[in-house]
């Protein structure tokens, strides 16, 4: 049969594709598992005494490896970034989709793509040269939790807006005509229907950007001030977990090194928890 040849060829290719894709999928899962295993093993001696890790003081020379302040700084700076970026990003997306002239929206969309591809260290550089002196003139020293939050907010804003744009446009396509047919103002339609309808897609995007902000190292290191302490105010300098790893990895040994691995372990577990949360929420809606 002439038809059997291409058919059998196809099923061979099918087998190949299946094997290749399964292989790639397994590799990704195994790598993640290996990283988790490696970090757990490397920080195991310290993991067994969790009380000391929750301490407030980080003095590696004296054997004090309290991560509390740095974990707090990581979480606070990232949450501050979300607090700044999410409302701003949503408002700009709404303006772009519903109110901006078409030509402006096109140029702005292209600019967003560009902003998203700027390396984070450049945001850090801008923060160091422009933002920190500005804040410093207002309330010294300038390098602070607030500076870190602002730089992170700028860094996550473009991708957040790209994702908000997709979610809101889809929501508008489906629901805007029906809402406006009820004689409500465009603003009420956006607030009461489009935003709630887009929320199941906005929420995972926000969590994803929170993950990026938590993991960002260089930009934060450049503007946060790097003093290990609980921030008394937004204007106090802080050191994040990621910055700490970058700053001390080159010379740490023994328990100090284990503490740094543990910082990495914490970041990974936090990221996994965030993803699980996003997934859980996605499956509920």
């Amino acid at each position: 049969m002439s038809i059997s040849t291409p058919l059998s060829l196809r099923s061979n290719l099918d087998w190949l594709l299946r094997a290749a894709s399964l292989g790639c999928a397994l590799t990704a899962a195994v790598v993640l598992l290996l990283i988790l295993l490696f970090l757990t093993q490397a920080s195991w001696p310290l993991l067994q005494q969790p009380a000391s890790l929750l301490g407030a003081s980080w003095q590696p020379a004296n054997g004090l490896f309290g991560l509390q302040a740095m974990l707090g700084a990581s979480l606070l700076s990232s949450l501050l970034a979300l607090l700044l970026a999410v409302p701003a990003g949503l408002l700009v997306s709404i303006w772009l989709i519903f109110y901006a002239p078409a030509a402006v929206a096109r140029v702005y969309g292209a600019m967003l793509g560009l902003m998203a591809s700027i390396p984070s260290v450049v945001y850090g550089l801008w923060g160091l040269v422009v933002l920190v002196p500005l804040l410093g003139a207002w309330l010294p020293p300038g390098a602070s939790l607030l500076a870190a939050g602002i730089v992170l907010a700028l860094m996550i804003l473009p991708l957040l807006m790209v994702q908000a744009d997709v979610a809101l446009r889809e929501s508008a396509r489906r629901h805007l005509p029906a809402a406006l047919c009820l004689g409500v103002s465009p603003w009420s339609a956006i607030r009461r229907v489009l935003l709630p309808a887009a929320w199941p897609r906005l929420w995972p995007a926000i969590l994803l950007q929170l993950g990026r902000a938590l993991g960002e190292t260089m930009a934060v290191l450049m503007v946060a001030g790097n003093v290990v302490q609980w921030p008394g105010s937004p204007f106090a300098p802080v050191r994040t977990l990621t910055a700490n790893i970058a700053l001390e990895m080159s010379y740490a040994t023994g328990p100090h090194l284990q503490a740094l691995y543990l910082s990495g372990w914490l970041l990974l577990v936090l990221a996994l928890l965030l993803m699980a949360l996003a997934r859980l929420y996605g499956s509920r809606t």
Binding site: H175, A178, A179, L182, G183, V184, R192, A197
Partner: peptide, 27 residues
């Protein structure tokens, strides 16, 4: 005001992804 006087139903059923009550109460 005109659109309050002139209701419309579309080809595809398109309730908002809100609760049943909220679909009606919203407007």
């Amino acid at each position: 005001a005109l659109r309050r006087q002139v209701g419309m139903v579309f080809q595809q059923p398109n309730p908002f992804p809100l609760s049943i009550a909220e679909n009606i109460l919203f407007a």
